[in-house]
């Protein structure tokens, strides 16, 4: 039911882990099925230098988290903000309809992390 890309990212997830003293952290819970995803960002200048994730969820949730980290690494904040759940799902060659909400989780966690970073910057 999953594409090869999804299975690849599920079995060999990129950027699993945490960043200590991260520039931004975003955590979202999935109201639908109760899953949790956390994304850590390391930002230098305007560039996302490093990104890590932790996910408690299904295969699609792990794969979308992994994919989203791969998509934003080295990108500017502005570019990262343009990433949507659809672009993540497309990058994985699609997700089964019942699993589209899992890709929301990844995009939302990323946007939360960026928001957290921006708030920190304002307060600094």
């Amino acid at each position: 039911m999953y594409s090869e890309k999804v299975m690849d990212h599920f079995m060999n997830p990129r950027n699993v882990g945490e960043i200590e003293d991260a520039a931004g952290v975003g955590e979202v819970g999935n109201a639908k099925c109760g899953d949790i995803m956390r994304i850590y960002l390391d930002v230098e200048g305007d560039i996302i230098k490093d990104v890590k994730f932790k996910t408690f969820g299904c295969g699609a949730a792990v794969a979308t988290s992994s994919m989203v980290t791969e998509m934003v690494k080295g990108k500017t904040i502005e570019e990262a903000l343009k990433i949507t759940n659809k672009s993540v799902a497309d990058a994985l060659d699609g997700l089964p309809p019942a699993k589209m909400h899992c890709s929301n989780l990844a995009a939302d966690a990323l946007h939360e992390a960026i928001k957290n970073y921006q708030e920190k910057m304002q307060n600094a």
């Binding site: 999953y2 299975m7 599920f10 079995m11 639908k32 099925c33 109760g34 899953d35 408690f56 969820g57 299904c58 295969g59 949730a61 792990v62 019942a98 909400h101 899992c102």
Partner: peptide, 27 residues
Amino acid sequence: EGEALLLSLDLMGIAASSGSACTSGSL
């Protein structure tokens, strides 16, 4: 989560099932 477990087990040739929300169509 159960679906991730089932997928991983399946890749090793093991068939089981789960009551996880992520394995049910209704979530």
